[in-house]
Each structure stands twice: as C-alpha cells, then as structure tokens.
Simulated assay, not measured.
Amino acid sequence: MSTTTLRPGVDVRRSADRLTTKIDWLDSRHSFSFGGHYEPENTHHGLLLVNNDDRIAPGTGFDTHPHRDMEIVTWVLSGSLVHQDSRGNSGVIYPGLAQRMSAGTGIQHSEKNDSWRLAGEKHDDPVHLVQMWVVPDEAGITPGYEQLEIAPERLAGQLVTVASGMPAHRDEAAIHISNRYAALHASRLEPGEYVRLPEAPLLHLFVPRGSVELEGAGKLETGDAVRLTGISGQRVTAVEPAEILVWEMHATID
C-alpha cells in the first residue's frame, strides 16, 4: 500500500455503465472488474477492489465458496441474507446490521436469501445488498467474523462509521476491518438533508438508492458512484430519500 500524493480528480461513474452479471437467481452490478468481467483500467480505487450491488432471488444465493486475504463488508438494503462459514460463524444480515468477514489465511462461506425468516412467512422478494472488499494491512491473518446492528436513528441525517481499521475510529466504528487506512461510512438522508464527505486523499461515494446532489459534480441517481482523489469535504444533499455509502481511504494499492 502507498500513501503517495495523487493527482486531484472527480470521476463520476453512472449506474448504466457498470459491468453486470445477470443469471436466473442473481442480478449483480459491479463497480470494478469482477469475475469474468475484466477491464485493465478499472480494477480498484484506493484500497477498494469490489463494490457489488446484488439482488438475489428468494430461496437462492451463493453456495459455499472460498476467499483469502480480503476484508469483506456486507451492507443489506432490503430483505435478509443468511451467512454461514467454515469457522462456525452464522448469522442473518438485514438492513442496518453491519457485517465483516476477514478471509485471512482462508475461509469458505455461503450467502443465501432468507428474507422470509424475518417476516415469518415465505415471499417472492429478492434481497438487495452491497458487498465491498478492501485489502487487509497484511496477508495471512487469522480469519474472523463480526456483525453489529446500527440503530436507525443513528443513520438518519448524518454519516455513521460502519467499518474501520483507522485508530481515529476505534471507539465509534460498528465493526472493525484489518486495514488502518480505510473506513466505511453510511447515511440515510431525507430531501434537503446533507452531510459532508470526510477529509481524505481518496474517497468512494456510492448511492445504492435514492438521489443526491454532490457539490461540484451534480446530481447522482440510484447506482451512481463517484471516485474522488485529492478532493474532499464536499456537501452531499438528498434530492429524494436516499442512502449513501462512503469509503474514506488514506492509502492506495501500489
């Protein structure tokens, strides 16, 4: 990882331009190269390698598969997702609950749409989630799992630290990741409400739902993202009810 000074820039990425994977049970939209989709100029931004916007059909999901040396954060927007892994961890992830899996030396897990459990009956709704991967500080750490619920009122009208490995966020982050240069923040905004982006050399703003106005860049709709380099502190104002996810990064991959 590097903390080298980078050329300032604001790179707006529209929803319609994302790479997509569509099969019978999955509608996945990728912000960066992923799986069979490869673009040599679109492999990461800062420390963020994956920002997948997934919709998984009921009764389906990702069967058991392996990961290693990656910090994986999952944020559910609607429905619920069941996680099970080879370390004996299991849990149901739903809106407002932050989840982190550290793959480390190697872990296998499955992720299934299990929304009906919370409602008490089966239904036909997909689970909508954003899954994000950042590199860890070092390879070969012990695999781990953490989840914690964030109260809805905390997310309303302000940026809340969802996941962080930065010492400055040690007491405020809901969950912790093994990278001291990165943090994820989230907010739910009503029309007219605004937050300011963190001060950091690298930022990734994603709008998983709703519409906002980014100071200096204009309107962003559902699925749009902005990669900021050397520019921070801008105001993000909701045009309609919206949810935003912001990665604050103080280093990049060499």
Rank of each mutant, 00 (worst) to 15 (best):
121 E>S: 06
121 E>R: 02
121 E>K: 02
121 E>D: 10
121 E>G: 00
121 E>I: 01
122 K>V: 01
122 K>Y: 00
122 K>R: 10
122 K>S: 05
122 K>G: 01
123 H>P: 02
123 H>N: 14
123 H>G: 12
124 D>V: 10
124 D>F: 12
124 D>M: 10
124 D>H: 12
124 D>T: 11
125 D>Y: 05
125 D>W: 03
125 D>S: 13
126 P>R: 03
126 P>I: 02
126 P>L: 01
126 P>K: 02
126 P>T: 05
127 V>P: 00
127 V>N: 00
127 V>H: 00
128 H>G: 05
128 H>L: 09
128 H>S: 12
128 H>F: 13
128 H>C: 09
128 H>W: 15
128 H>K: 12
128 H>P: 01
129 L>Y: 03
129 L>H: 04
129 L>C: 01
129 L>E: 00
130 V>T: 00
130 V>A: 01
130 V>R: 01
131 Q>F: 13
131 Q>C: 12
131 Q>R: 11
132 M>T: 08
132 M>I: 12
132 M>W: 09
132 M>V: 09
132 M>N: 07
132 M>H: 08
132 M>C: 14
132 M>E: 08
133 W>L: 08
133 W>I: 08
133 W>D: 06
134 V>D: 00
134 V>Q: 05
134 V>I: 14
134 V>G: 02
134 V>T: 13
135 V>F: 05
135 V>S: 08
136 P>S: 08
136 P>A: 09
136 P>H: 06
136 P>C: 09
136 P>D: 05
137 D>P: 12
137 D>N: 15
137 D>W: 14
137 D>K: 12
137 D>G: 14
138 E>H: 15
138 E>W: 11
139 A>G: 09
140 G>I: 07
140 G>Q: 10
140 G>W: 07
141 I>K: 08
141 I>L: 13
141 I>Y: 05
141 I>A: 10
141 I>G: 03
141 I>N: 05
142 T>I: 04
142 T>G: 02
142 T>C: 01
142 T>Y: 01
143 P>V: 03
143 P>K: 03
143 P>S: 07
143 P>A: 07
144 G>M: 07
144 G>L: 04
144 G>P: 05
144 G>S: 14
145 Y>V: 06
145 Y>Q: 06
145 Y>F: 14
145 Y>G: 09
145 Y>C: 07
145 Y>D: 05
145 Y>R: 07
145 Y>I: 04
146 E>T: 06
146 E>L: 08
146 E>R: 10
146 E>C: 07
146 E>V: 04
147 Q>L: 05
147 Q>A: 07
147 Q>T: 05
147 Q>C: 09
148 L>P: 02
148 L>I: 11
148 L>H: 14
148 L>E: 12
149 E>G: 03
149 E>F: 06
149 E>A: 13
149 E>C: 02
149 E>L: 06
149 E>W: 06
150 I>L: 13
150 I>Y: 11
151 A>C: 09
152 P>T: 06
152 P>K: 08
152 P>F: 12
152 P>R: 08
153 E>D: 15
153 E>K: 06
153 E>W: 10
153 E>F: 11
153 E>R: 06
153 E>T: 05
153 E>G: 04
154 R>K: 15
154 R>Y: 15
154 R>L: 15
154 R>D: 15
154 R>M: 15
154 R>Q: 15
155 L>N: 01
155 L>D: 00
155 L>G: 04
155 L>T: 03
156 A>M: 06
156 A>I: 04
157 G>F: 08
157 G>A: 11
157 G>I: 03
158 Q>D: 14
158 Q>T: 14
158 Q>Y: 13
158 Q>G: 12
